[in-house]
Each structure stands twice: as structure tokens, then as C-alpha cells.
Design a protein around this nucleic acid. Structure first.
Length: 101
DNA sequence: ATGTTGACCGACT
DNA sequence: GAGTCGGCCAACA
């Protein structure tokens, strides 16, 4: 059984619609009483495929992973219709999920 | 129990 | 835009 905080984080991530993205801080607020850092840590430890972790990016609209994982995440986002610029950055004003609050 | 570390954020220079 | 700093809190050695 995962901790309560993690459960809330995962639940929040699952609410992100396809083709949309959310920031760590945003998830942290929706989950409630969780630090943004905890969200990143929770997703790192995550291995559950029912959670769309790839739709979670940092406040700058960039993918926070390096190496292959980052490449994979970018590919999955593009596959859902999210556009990324040359720097691998997402236009938050346009793709940011506006639910949850 | 203590000290580091980390898929972060916001404010400041 | 780029670099620094403090705050956040759980996992790990």
C-alpha cells in the first residue's frame, strides 16, 4: 500500500486529460499538502502504467528527465498531440490542464 | 538516528 | 535569460 500522499498524487495525475499537461507544482496543489518535490519523487518511484506520468512536466514547460526517459516522454507527448519546440519545451499557456481548481 | 539526495518551485540578483 | 538560495518532504545509505 502506497502512502496516502502518493495516492493523492497519482489520483491527480490520472485526472489530466489526453493531449494536456500539468506541472509538478500544479499536481502538488491539487493533491493537497504535498511539496512539488514530492510529486517528482513519487513519479520517479512509480511503475504503474495506469498513471500518465508523461503528462507531468516542470514549471518551465520542460521535461525534467535526462537520457532515454526524457526522450520517451517527449515521444509520448507528441503522440498525444502535444507540440514541443526545438528546445523540447511545451507552451504551457496552451496545453496546461485547467482543471482541478 | 543523521546526513544526502532528488523527475521541483518561487523569489531574487 | 542565466545563476543562486531557501524551502519543501520522503527515500536511502
Amino acid at each position: 500500500m502506497v502512502s496516502d500522499s502518493y495516492a493523492r498524487i497519482y489520483a491527480a495525475v490520472r485526472r489530466i486529460p489526453v493531449g494536456r499537461v500539468a506541472t509538478y507544482g500544479q499536481i502538488a496543489r491539487v493533491a493537497g499538502r504535498v511539496g512539488a518535490r514530492q510529486v517528482g519523487y513519487a513519479l520517479h518511484r512509480l511503475r504503474d502504467e495506469s498513471v500518465p506520468w508523461h503528462r507531468v512536466i516542470n514549471a518551465r514547460g520542460e521535461i525534467s528527465l535526462g537520457g532515454e526517459a526524457g526522450d520517451v516522454q517527449r515521444a509520448m507527448l507528441e503522440g498525444e498531440g502535444v507540440e514541443l519546440d526545438a528546445r523540447g519545451r511545451v507552451d504551457l499557456e496552451r496545453y496546461r490542464w485547467r482543471g482541478g481548481a
